[in-house]
């Protein structure tokens, strides 16, 4: 790989542009999809690999997609959110914490992540969650969590989780139903949030949520919580 080619790849990554590194085997010639001119078949295979986020082989080309990082939107700058940050960063997530309560959402409490002080409906409109986005709500406060979940349910986010007991969640579902969400649509919300590892501390709760996000992303069978 030439340093110039690496710089182009890194520039695409910095711009959060999905690209695919195409390497001819065994000679090592390289093209960047979709930027470089290339045979139609290779271009199509590269587009499919980017879409599937999986490497592919096409004739003698190895196609290696480099997608922007998965995003994690955390609503609520609470203790469990703080505990999730290093784990989520280590897994490669680009993290945004949304909380209009400025006393909680400070750079001191949330080092190294994007902080958004808008109300969740405005923040969600701005951040436009896509199929590579996970959304968790952690405040327990309907004024903050409900508009975030309303927007999350209208998005194609691959994971939606909401902190709160079964009773809290039952009431929450009633409120979301009044906003026009069907029971089927609301079944996307993982609640009580997190894999059932009997989490007690903030770090354990954070771990259970992160593990559930990974399991969902990878299509693992999840234990149902009866």
């Amino acid at each position: 790989m030439t340093p110039e080619f690496l710089a182009r790849l890194q520039a695409a990554q910095a711009a959060k542009r999905p690209v695919a590194l195409c390497t001819q085997l065994p000679g090592g010639a390289q093209l960047l999809a979709p930027d470089d001119a290339m045979p139609e078949g290779l271009a199509q295979a590269a587009a499919a690999a980017i879409e599937a986020d999986k490497t592919a082989l096409f004739e003698d080309w190895f196609i290696h997609p480099h997608n922007p990082p998965l995003r994690l939107l955390i609503v609520g700058a609470v203790h469990a959110a703080q505990a999730m940050l290093p784990m989520a960063a280590g897994l490669g997530f680009a993290i945004t914490v949304i909380d209009p309560r400025r006393a909680f959402a400070t750079a001191e409490r949330l080092p190294g992540v994007d902080i958004n002080h808008e109300w969740p409906d405005d923040a969600m409109a701005e951040l436009a969650p896509d199929t590579r986005t996970a959304i968790v709500t952690l405040t327990h406060d309907p004024k903050i969590d409900d508009p975030a979940l309303d927007a999350a349910l209208r998005s194609p986010a691959f994971y939606i989780g909401a902190l709160g007991s079964r009773r809290t969640h039952a009431k929450r579902l009633e409120r979301l139903a009044e906003l026009g969400h069907s029971a089927e649509a609301m079944a996307r919300i993982r609640a009580p949030i997190g894999l059932d590892i009997k989490a007690v501390t903030a770090a354990e709760i954070g771990l259970s949520i992160i593990a559930e996000i990974v399991a969902t992303r990878r299509g693992a069978a999840l234990a149902s919580r009866g």
Binding site: Q10, Q13, G90, F93
Partner: peptide
């Protein structure tokens, strides 16, 4: 802290 190996490689080369 997610490791960007290409950035690390570029750093060694630099």
């Amino acid at each position: 802290m997610s490791e960007d190996l290409l950035a690390v490689a570029a750093g060694w080369r630099a």
